[in-house]
Design a protein around this nucleic acid. Structure first.
Lengths: 146, 146
DNA sequence: TGGAGGTTGTTCAAATTCGAACCACTGGAG
DNA sequence: CTCCAGTGGTTCGAATTTGAACAACCTCCA
């Protein structure tokens, strides 16, 4: 359980640190940044709500709320899904791309400072492998998304 | 950044999974469980509010709130600090100890299932070392507790 | 002694999150 | 064609979290 305790403290501290930096530099929440980043990597910079929710690991209602916030700021738009009238597509706007472009460097710098740069290449490789294993196992274990 | 993305997904999923299990089995929040666990390990099962807040990595106001909740359920009491009239000690009650004793096995089982048992001994050792490094670095970098 | 400056814990409003309930729509079975 | 279980999103209420503002208290120096 020593590993678990160390992990817990580290993860809480990382979250606080990243949150603080993002909020100060760009006024974005970490959750919001993750949403923008996911959209930015998606084909056509758009994703179905449910798929996006899975990706960033947040509840459906949580995503609805955050997309609403991002829409207010003009960083994201909603579009109806052509193949399914129920579906909603979250689309990253040009303003969203711009915001991300401006914000990413500072964010990446902090992540390097508090995590990446502390690890040897071996540790980094193992970390990635371990976390991927954990992700796969956890997604399989309980309901993929309630 | 692949390591970071993997870490983010895994940590969110872990948190959800653990939260779900605790809430279902004992009606405790993960934050509340961490508080009880910390108190249980402390000498005389009591800690100063600020020290406890540092330990579980939560804001002062957040801790005040959670201690209030735990007090309502009789799992924790407040005692005034003998050496400092401002100070407040959070004290784990017998009911609190009992609750923790009842809850811990299920919690530990889930943690093993989604993390510990997936790792080789080498990986576990490295994980602990890495997370401790991250914790130390992050605590040093920004203000210890705002 | 007399504060000045820093700590400690609480209160307050605002933001975020979740789960449950709810509609609208899809995709087959009959 | 019609109905019906299942999906996809949103809405709603409740719980939690945070930072800023406060009040009480300690510490140490002139």
């Amino acid at each position: 359980m020593a590993a678990w305790r160390a992990y817990l403290s580290a993860s809480h501290l990382l979250e606080r640190r990243v949150e603080e930096q993002l909020k100060a530099e760009s006024g974005l929440t970490h959750a919001q940044y993750e949403i923008l980043a996911r959209l930015s990597d998606a084909p056509d910079r758009r994703l179905r709500m449910t798929e996006l929710a899975r990706g960033v690991v947040v509840s459906k209602s949580g995503l609805t709320y955050q997309i609403g916030q991002l829409e207010k700021r003009g960083l994201v738009e909603r579009a109806t899904c052509p193949s399914d009238d129920r579906g909603v597509l979250a689309v990253l706007t040009d303003r969203g791309v711009e915001c991300l472009r401006r914000t990413a460097p500072g964010h990446v710098a902090v992540v390097r400072e508090v995590l990446i740069d502390l690890l040897t290449p071996d540790e980094l490789e193992m970390m990635t492998r371990v976390m991927s294993k954990v992700e796969a196992a956890t997604r399989a274990s309980a309901g993929p998304l309630p």
